[in-house]
Every structure is written in structure tokens, then in C-alpha cells.
């Protein structure tokens, strides 16, 4: 059976930060291929460069050298404004602290990325309704984030991430701020997005339970990417 084509292809990616006149390497010659519909989890100790790699893949940061190809687009050569446009159409974000806009309702939060498209108001409304029904929050669309639980807020954030039907979903510690039950719901939802809707997901996590939901697990330590060791199932699970 032929393997699926890689939707993300990272080649010789190097990233370092300058601090106090010194260059601190964060990622060293990272090479990675992520196939379409793959659910990849990135693990590693704090400061290992997981979030940096995720930010580079999502087009939030610029690499020192190397290449990141998402779909048929080389994103390392894009300018800041081109990256903004690219992100709007191709990337859905799921953050640890949900990052919903507190003064907007669930509906409006989900509608936000659609404001950057040319969809009509009617079409936007229909897309938002579909996304909210996908996360089972159709009855909460008029609620403000403060009126929702943590798990519900993260589900709204997931609806916001998928509403534009992006090529890629990036999730930075999506269960990091949730209780076990809510975390399970969110992970279940992400798994569903991947298996049923064919979404490609790249997730950074410290949570072994979250990592086990992924299809592929990579381990990052001191800027070097390796295949992760087998994660033992804790007894409590």
C-alpha cells in the first residue's frame, strides 16, 4: 500500500535565540515528515525546543536556516504579512489556556478566523454552527468564555481551530490546564478530528495520556529530535 504524501516536510531546520550577546541553539538540524491525517505528539523536557518547533511549523516564528514545507508552500521564505495570511487559511491553533477572547461570545470567538475570509455573513454563520455542533456546544454559542467551564472553553477553541477547515492543527499542551475528565473529552475530540475528518495534528505535550492518543510520538531533547521511547501506561490509567 503506498504511503500517504507528507503534508509537512521539515529539512535541516536550525533555530537559535540570542541572549545577552550569546547565541543559544534551540533546534539543530531537525528533519521531520508528517503525513496527511497524522496525529503527531512532541514530547521532551522543558526548554528542549518543543514549542519552538511547533511555532516554526505554525508560521509564528522564523527559522535561522532550513526549510519547512507545508502542503506545497515553503513557509520559511514568507514575509510577516504573508505568514499572517497563510496562517489564517491553513493553520488552526489550540492553546493550553484556550486563549478565547473574553469579550466575545463562543459564537463570535469561533467566527473570528472566518472574518479573514471572503465568506458571506450567512456562510460564516453556517460554518460556525457546524464547528460548534462538532464540539457539542451548539447550545452554548451565546455564552461568554467566563460562563463556560475549562473543558467547554477548550472545545470552543477547537471549534475555532477547525472552522476554516485548515491544513494543519497545532496544539500546545491542549490538556495542560484541564481536569482529567475534560482532558479526556478534548483528546477524544482531537482523535475524532484526525481519524474521521482526516486532520493533520501536531501536538506538544507533557501528558503521557495525551501522547498515547497520538499516532506518532517524537521526542525532543536539547534541540535534537528522536523517536520517543515507549511510554509505559501508568497503573492508574
Amino acid at each position: 500500500m503506498p504511503s500517504k504524501r507528507p503534508v509537512i516536510e521539515i529539512t535541516d531546520l536550525v533555530k537559535s535565540y540570542r541572549r545577552g550577546g550569546q547565541s543559544i541553539p534551540v533546534l539543530e538540524n531537525i528533519c521531520l515528515k508528517i503525513e496527511e491525517g497524522e496525529f503527531l505528539a512532541l514530547m521532551g523536557p522543558s526548554g528542549s525546543g518543543k514549542s519552538t518547533l511547533l511555532n516554526l511549523i505554525a508560521g509564528l516564528d522564523q527559522a535561522d536556516s532550513g526549510s519547512i514545507r507545508v502542503g506545497d508552500r515553503e513557509i520559511t521564505v514568507l514575509s510577516e504579512s504573508e505568514l499572517a495570511r497563510w496562517r489564517a487559511g491553513h493553520v488552526g491553533f489550540i492553546f493550553q489556556f484556550y486563549n478565547l477572547i473574553p469579550v466575545l461570545t463562543a459564537f463570535e470567538n469561533v467566527e473570528l478566523p472566518l472574518m479573514l475570509t471572503r465568506l458571506s455573513k450567512k456562510a460564516r454563520k453556517s460554518h460556525v454552527a457546524t464547528a460548534l455542533s462538532l464540539v457539542s456546544l451548539s447550545d452554548r454559542m451565546d455564552h461568554y468564555p467566563r460562563q463556560l467551564s475549562g473543558g467547554q472553553q477548550q472545545r470552543v477553541a477547537i471549534a475555532r481551530a477547525v472552522v476554516t477547515d485548515p491544513t494543519l492543527l497545532v496544539a500546545d499542551e491542549p490538556t495542560g490546564d484541564l481536569d482529567r475528565h475534560s482532558a479526556d473529552e478534548v483528546l477524544q475530540l482531537m482523535d475524532q478530528l484526525c481519524t474521521e475528518l482526516g486532520k493533520t495534528i501536531v501536538m506538544v505535550t507533557h501528558d503521557p495520556r495525551a501522547a498515547r492518543k497520538s499516532h506518532t510520538l517524537k521526542y525532543l531533547e536539547k534541540g535534537v529530535l528522536t523517536d520517543a521511547p515507549q511510554i509505559a501506561a501508568p497503573e492508574c490509567l
Partner: peptide, 14 residues
């Protein structure tokens, strides 16, 4: 600040 970061991440321009 976080809201601004979120909006920018979602694709809103400067």
C-alpha cells in the same frame, strides 16, 4: 497582550 498574540496567531495583521 495574550489576546493580541492570539489574534495575530489566528492571522490578523498588524
Amino acid at each position: 497582550t495574550a489576546e493580541i498574540g492570539t489574534l495575530r496567531a489566528l492571522g490578523f495583521t498588524q
